[in-house]
Design a protein around this nucleic acid. Sequence first.
DNA 1: AACCTGCGGGCTAGTTAGCA
DNA 2: TGCTAACTAGCCCGCAGGTT
Length: 228
Amino acid sequence: MLDTSARLLRLLSLLQSRRDWPSADLAERLGVARRTVRRDVERLRGLGYPVHSTPGVAGGYRLGAGAELPPLLLDDEEAVAVAVGLRTAAGGTVEGIEETSLRAPAKLEQVLPARLRHRVNALQTHTVRIHRDGPTVDAGLFTRVAAACRDHERLRFAYTDHEGEVTMRTAEPHSLVTKGNRWHLVGWDTGRIAVAAAFLDVGFEVLEPVELKERLHALGRRLLSSRI
DNA sequence: AACCTGCGGGCTAGTTAGCA
DNA sequence: TGCTAACTAGCCCGCAGGTT
């Protein structure tokens, strides 16, 4: 059986891996009684982790978002995936995050076990990313448009068609899609009453919040499942 | 031997959702 | 609306192992 400290770390890892956890599931995973799970949850709360509980049917425990990022507990594969992903982002098409994309994996690699650091270094040393000249997306704009998708805000932006003609469009955004090293915004074009995909490397301006329509979700899913 | 700590069981209260 | 089931929370108790 795990000692208390190891069990607390395991519990924290479980809470980070899934949104909702009934105590019975946690008890089974940890190999302890539900009463012990309750004590461990109290300990985590005492350490400052915001563990929320929901009573009633379908209730359970959930790790909330605190004021600061809690220590993430990654398994081996997750740690490697994050390290490689951050390295890739450093040479990506989003402007303004290159430096932080190098700083973050450096921190991660410092705490990686030797066996994992070896794997990550091998991937970095023996993979080459061909630098591609092309449009990049400002990190601020990127996160702002993503937030508009999340918050159901309407966007106005300039769209350049194949013949180079620039028109102003208004759309209800659905999601950001990357294809061929270029970012696209997929959404419902309110002017043309149609689903549209537009390159993100052009000017955007947020207009006003709107309710995202169900048809947008359905059409967006359909579009995402096919080619842009 | 006494004390402390951690664990687990049992009971009860309160909350929530589903159903007749 | 009332009942039931499923869930967390609080409290109490006993047991086991380690420490003083």
